[in-house]
Design a binder for these strands. Structure first.
Length: 417
RNA sequence: GUGGGUAUAGCUCAGCCGGUAGAGCGCUGGAUUGUGGUUCCAGAUGUCGUGGGUUCAAAUCCCACUACCCACCCCA
């Protein structure tokens, strides 16, 4: 048997309804903030990600699906989409368009990791980028928007975690201080931290090993090293969030995995996700466009929601979303009734109703099927009904049956959706 | 890349000390020639993950492999 490959999966009904729900809500909310959709290719030149995401990140150094095209070009299945969006922004000179560029996207990303709960090799992200402003109010609006997406999608009990990771000026000073102090204490820490101290000292701050916590407490905090500009920016983001009544927790040890982040970074975590408890991550990336070859500065900020993880929790808390929604199930009896019903079904469907039509089977079977699909009504169409023009309409919840004319059916079922 | 767990019907799983496979749900048909949900009756579906070994005999014991799940690393 040929199976879906490792780390990929089929989204079957009725679970697919939850995906549609989440995507519908996300579009509606983001468009209400005047964001517009951008669709970029699912594969790009490998170099885009190497330069955008960072050569030394895990994503680039060991997780990308890359191959050589027939002409020798190195190509890669996108492991995230910010680099692609910025590439597109530069290529199409979106900086020349009026106003801020507020763009959203949704779709599959690919990373070759060992799969586990909430982590797949093909996974979906819903993300947005706003490019062209450094204003802290932009940060706050973006965060407000994504919290709105999460709550309207049905996610409850999510926690927003906020930090600032500084800029090109102040971060190096912090890193130097961190490395300095790690020289003394790293030897006493877990094996992972001893390795991280050399390769990626920021990650030490995020270590989960309980025995390392006392040492981590004593390490320097980025917030004490922010330059004046970054400090002011962060304070302003916070006050904008406070004014909007958005709760958050400042965590100076919040670390993001991508090299391009500057200043504001944030994450939303949720308890019901297993070990991968982060449902979204995001942050500002003021130098990214220039790193990708833009002649003009294009400061920006964005986020991406792990759609698989969001769907996972919404599925659990809102099982009703997976119910089918057939308004009317038509049960024709015989060939003539089937032909008659076909036209009736089309009329009601054009009116906006969800109509299912049984193509074969005895009435009893059709009623059984209608019942199992959760259809609200069943319409029986036989010789009597065709002759009299009065159809038998059965309410599947109560079992009550009444006779209705074609006009009454239209009244009843038009505009259902 | 590393560690742990699991693998028996479409799904969830039982099957202890080896004796040749079961339940619930689902599916199909019937009780009901134009009426579902409840009930009752009947029925179908298994290379017991794959390969090898031990044994008179293996779903069961041993070995290897594979797949999936969970966790680490890391991240959405």
């Amino acid at each position: 048997m040929i199976r879906a490959i490792k780390g990929t999966r089929d989204i079957l009904p009725p679970a697919s309804a939850v995906w549609n729900h989440v995507e519908r809500v996300a579009r509606r909310v983001m468009e209400s903030y005047a964001y517009q959709e951008i669709r970029t290719p699912i594969f790009e030149e490998t170099d885009l990600f190497a330069r955008g995401v960072g050569e030394d990140t895990d994503i680039v150094s060991k997780e990308m699906y890359s191959w050589e095209d027939r002409d020798g070009t190195r190509l890669t299945l996108r492991p995230e989409n910010t680099a692609g969006v910025i590439r597109s922004y530069i290529e199409h000179r979106l900086d020349q368009r009026p106003g801020l560029q507020k763009l959203y996207y949704m779709g599959p990303m690919f990373r070759r990791e060992r799969p586990q709960k909430g982590r797949y090799r093909q996974f979906s992200q819903i993300g947005a980028e706003v490019i062209g402003s450094e204003s802290p109010a932009v940060d706050a609006e973006l965060i407000e928007m994504v919290m709105e997406v999460l709550s309207q999608a049905g996610l409850e009990g999510a926690r927003l975690i906020l930090n600032s990771v500084g800029c090109k000026e102040c971060r190096p000073k912090f890193l130097a201080a961190l490395r300095e102090q790690l020289k003394d204490v790293a030897a006493g820490m877990c094996n992972d931290c001893q390795r991280r101290a050399g390769t990626n000292p920021l990650r030490v701050l995020d270590c989960k090993a309980p025995e390392d916590q006392p040492a981590i407490e004593k390490l320097p905090s980025i917030l004490d090293y922010l330059c004046e500009t970054c400090r002011t920016h962060f304070a302003s983001v916070r006050s904008h969030l406070d004014e909007r009544g958005i709760g958050y927790e400042v965590r100076p040890r919040l670390v993001r995995g991508l090299d391009y982040y500057t200043r504001t970074t944030f994450e939303v975590v949720h308890g019901a996700l297993g070990a991968q408890n982060s449902v979204l991550g995001g942050g500002r990336y003021d130098g990214l466009a220039e790193a990708l070859g833009s002649k003009v500065p294009a400061p920006g900020i964005g986020f991406s929601i792990g759609e698989d993880r969001l769907v996972m929790t919404v599925e659990e808390t809102h099982p009703g979303l997976m119910k089918g929604s057939i308004d009317l199930f038509i049960a024709p009896m015989g060939e003539a009734a089937l032909r008659h019903s076909t036209l009736l079904a089309r009329e009601l469907r054009r009116g906006g109703a969800v109509v299912e039509l049984a193509f074969e089977g005895k009435l009893k079977r059709v009623l059984e099927t209608a019942n199992k699909t959760g259809a609200r009504y069943t319409l029986i169409v036989g010789d009597n009904e065709m002759e009299s023009g009065a159809y038998a309409l059965k309410n599947m919840a109560t079992g009550e049956q009444e006779t209705v004319t074609r006009e009454q059916l239209a009244e009843r079922f038009y505009g259902k959706h």
